[in-house]
């Protein structure tokens, strides 16, 4: 039987590619028996689904903003070019 360490690697890989038949079966069997890895798998699935939404939220993070001076600089650069 595969170890938890190997299982976590397969849980991650499953998000990026199709596993081979043997890998799929070993993982399935491991998850059936191991509740820690089951939780881990659920959490990685959750991570994947939130990451697809992260980009929209980045835009709203007002902890990071341009200073008024930087905006002036940008305006000057645009004026220069147009």
């Amino acid at each position: 039987m595969i170890t938890c360490k190997q299982a976590t690697q397969l849980i991650s890989e499953k998000l990026d590619r199709d596993l081979g038949l043997w890998q799929r079966l070993s993982l399935k069997f491991h998850l059936f028996l191991c509740r820690y890895c089951r939780k881990y798998a659920r959490q990685l699935d959750f991570l994947r689904s939130v990451c697809t939404q992260l980009d929209q939220h980045i835009e709203c993070n007002d902890q990071h903003s341009l200073s008024p001076e930087s905006k002036q600089k940008l305006k000057a650069a645009i004026k220069n070019e147009s």
Partner: peptide
């Protein structure tokens, strides 16, 4: 543009 989109682009 700087006022409209500056912060959004900067955050990305």
């Amino acid at each position: 543009w700087p006022d409209q989109y500056g912060d959004i682009l900067y955050r990305h």
